[in-house]
Computed example of a mutant assay.
Amino acid sequence: MLITLGKGKFILNAHADVYARAAMEAYADACEATSSERARRIRESLYLGRRMPLCVQTALRIVREAQVVGRLRADYSESAWLQVLHTLELIEREPEVIKMFSNWPGSNPR
């Protein structure tokens, strides 16, 4: 992906640079609402069809922020939120664990 910032240009190589991949994944998420076709093409080029995002840290941050808002609701369940957070933390530590899920390509669910 070529990015032009004022005087400089940057080329993000998502297949060689995990940070570039994360940036392109975030870009696809950001443009989804207004340019779903662009987002789809980016995800296809990154092979992200049904995969966990590369930016598990981003997912954790968003879930933690949503949990703060969730605590204001009468039907808030601490145990449910903790289960989600613990699962994301596990995936961050041990990415291979995602293969336990049945919708993961090449998975072998128990």
Rank of each mutant, 00 (worst) to 15 (best):
R51P: 00
K99A: 13
K7P: 13
W81A: 05
A28N: 02
P109E: 04
I3R: 09
A26R: 15
E65G: 07
L88N: 00
R64E: 06
I11Q: 06
R93T: 03
M24L: 07
G106C: 10
R40C: 04
S79P: 12
E37Y: 07
K9D: 04
M100T: 07
S77M: 06
Y76A: 00
T58K: 15
Y47H: 10
S45W: 01
S107F: 03
R73K: 14
R73I: 05
D17R: 11
L12M: 09
R64S: 04
K99Q: 14
E37S: 11
L88F: 04
A39M: 07
S107Q: 03
A80R: 14
N13P: 00
S79F: 14
L48R: 04
G49W: 05
R50A: 05
L88T: 01
I98Q: 15
S102R: 13
L85K: 05
E25V: 02
L48D: 03
V56K: 12
S102T: 00
V84G: 02
R21C: 04
I3D: 04
E37Q: 09
H86T: 13
L60F: 01
L46M: 08
N108F: 10
W104D: 08
N108L: 12
Q57H: 08
P109C: 07
V56Y: 05
E32F: 06
Q57I: 01
Q83P: 12
K99H: 15
S102V: 03
D17E: 12
P105T: 01
Y27S: 02
K9A: 11
D29K: 09
Q57K: 10
P105F: 02
Y47K: 13
L46A: 04
N103Y: 15
M24N: 00
L82P: 11
I98M: 14
R51I: 06
P95M: 06
H15R: 11
D29T: 08
E89C: 08
G106E: 10
S45H: 00
I91T: 07
R51E: 12
E25W: 01
R38H: 05
G106T: 04
L72H: 00
R41L: 09
A59G: 01
E65Q: 12
G6E: 10
E65A: 15
G8D: 15
A59K: 02
Y27Q: 03
R73D: 12
N108T: 05
R40D: 03
A39E: 01
V56F: 03
V18F: 03
T4Y: 01
